[in-house]
Write a protein that binds this DNA or RNA. Structure first.
Lengths: 208, 208, 208, 208
DNA sequence: AATGAATGAGGATTCATTCAT
DNA sequence: GATGAATGAATCCTCATTCAT
């Protein structure tokens, strides 16, 4: 009849505690993809399904909706931090990594707007007052710190000379990152950096 | 058959058909504000409530979610068109109007992303394919045409010399427009234009 | 923009009191067609639109949902009454008219079920108790009386000998009247009469 | 993002996954009763309430309106199939079971009309074209097959000798099944069979 | 530790009915 | 008398979150 939850269905064996870490990773990966395709408002159930786990597992690892988004984000930020911490790190090189994440991850763009609100102008209270989740703010700060660390000590021509401007520039590029395909989005991102007169290294994920 | 209200209950006054035009305007105004505060995904019921009308009125005037957003948008675009068509219109002046709308209207920012996807990375089909609503595309083109018309015939230093770059610049500024208050958002918008080396006139709505 | 009720639309001139009767007739005709195509639950607004009048007119003529259905019905019943009252009326002839209405009018079939409930098993109160609208019951009785009047005084072989059985037979035929097209429905109605061993005259509306 | 219940409010007990099968059965049972009393158009919420489950459960088990109706139906048809498959099955005996379902289940009556249209004259498209759901058609065929299997090999007097006529007869009886109480409906069903000259066994649900 | 069923609030949408004009 | 806009209750449906197993 209806091929629905009659519950005499087979239960996909409890793969035991060992799977926990793997599940977490699978969830984050699934979330990244789902976010990229369906936006940050995609149903959590879809993420769990794509990760191949039950809804409960998602909640075990991530207490609320923001937690999972933050986890995706955390990966993004961590890679930027690592790129920045790397031996011969240059601003251009790090911005290449930043650009990669802007192009690939909707969550990352969301972060840049996190000190304003979750969504672009998004607010929560009935009164319209804004609030930011501590975690997002924390990540935002880590990101800023990483980027700031790459700024040359003195001022150089053609490079924003204050970290404020640098953060602003990143937000601006994020605004340019529109388009159906990653290729198109990358093309626009690079055009945006060019318009700002800022040199960017190869657009790539950071692999230590 | 269907048993509906029939209510002998008190009805909150039917202001009559004369209110129609007024209601429509109220809805658009309410939508503009709600969008600004709560984002484009705000519940329609909230818009109706703010406009002081019943849910049904909203649906009568705007058959679907996009229709109301487009109406807000249309006002935005129209003002830009008018500013551009104005006698002594300058690029800087028009960009001031554009900036005003970027700062005030979430819908307007959404438009800039409309030729890429409805939301930022938002997709609709299960397959992740993107689609754009014809209306949004139309408005997007009107906006671009208006802006293009303001470009100087020759190239001037410090001004993007292709309309593609100009549109890109607007998208970039839109990325910078973050923040809890209009003031903060305007501050950031102006900083963004400055970073691009583009001069902007007074940030103001266009009143013929 | 939206080509919707901005209310500066032209108002279709008030055609004056003379139109009242015409409007009523138009409504009944529209209802008959709408019912046939969309069932008895079709929105009233659709009926009004098809009749080319405002919603208010519908309510002026018919205070509630049942009133309009009953009006359609009344026409059906009246034709049967007239056919039965006709000079050389025979049972077979009248049943031909009855069949015509069964085939053409969803409302008429509904009537046959009216002493049970509006819909088939339909009930209204939360308690599941049934009630029938007085008007429908009245029509039902008129219909029965008309039919009874055609019964031969004595019993004839092959003809139901009680009016109860005759009414039952009509209900049974109504159950057979299924199908996408009037033709198909008529075919089935005739087959049903045949199965009952009851002779039916030509299937036709009654025109005096 | 979306601010959902989160409710610290008391939750009316989650009876756990074990309840799934029971819930499904409860829903089908509730639907059967609700349909019988309020017709096939009864609000789904009422079914869920009667079954003592949340709205969501209904949607989990039955993705759409037709699914639940079909489930009720499936039970009806299955019982008829079983009665027909039974050792000493006779046509009269099976028709007794059929009659039981006609008397008890509005959904079952609906089925008989399914190869014509969903509702009686009900249509879906604006164009008035009819369509039947595959599932309903499937069930309709199973029912017909089961009944056909009970027909005697040769022709016997007083029994329809073609399966077409038999199906027509069932539809006709369904038309007779009107009335506020099951008792009244059963009385009329039996009278209908009598009028057709068809012998029917005891009216009863089939219990293996 | 995992599973996925259950819950129910919330948002979307429709339509009977009223009523200002 | 007619018009059709306005109202809002009711229904549909989705999905965040909890929790029995």
């Amino acid at each position: 009849m209806t091929k629905h939850p009659t519950s005499d269905e087979r239960r996909p064996a409890n793969r035991g505690p060992k799977a926990a870490a793997g599940n977490r990773a699978a969830l984050v990966a699934a979330a990244r993809e789902i976010y990229a395709v369906h936006g940050l408002d995609a149903p959590l159930s879809r993420i769990a399904r794509k990760a191949g786990v039950g809804q409960g597992v998602l909640y075990r690892h991530f207490p609320d909706r923001d937690a999972i988004a933050s986890a995706v984000l955390e990966e993004n930020v961590r890679q930027v931090e690592q790129a920045a911490a790397d031996e011969g790190a240059t601003l251009a090189g790090v911005l290449g990594v930043v650009t990669w994440h802007l192009v690939r991850s909707a969550a990352f763009i969301g972060l840049l707007h996190a000190d304003g609100a979750s969504g672009r102008f998004h607010a929560d209270g009935e009164d319209g007052r804004f609030h930011t989740h501590a975690l997002a703010r924390d990540l935002s700060e880590r990101f800023e710190r990483a980027l700031r660390g790459c700024l040359p000590d003195g001022h150089r021509p053609g490079v924003p000379d204050a970290s404020d401007d640098l953060m602003l520039a990143v937000a601006m590029v994020s605004g340019a990152v529109i388009g159906p395909t990653p290729e198109e989005r990358e093309r626009r991102a690079l055009a945006a950096w060019r318009l700002l007169g800022i040199t960017v290294g190869p657009v790539t994920a950071f692999e230590g």
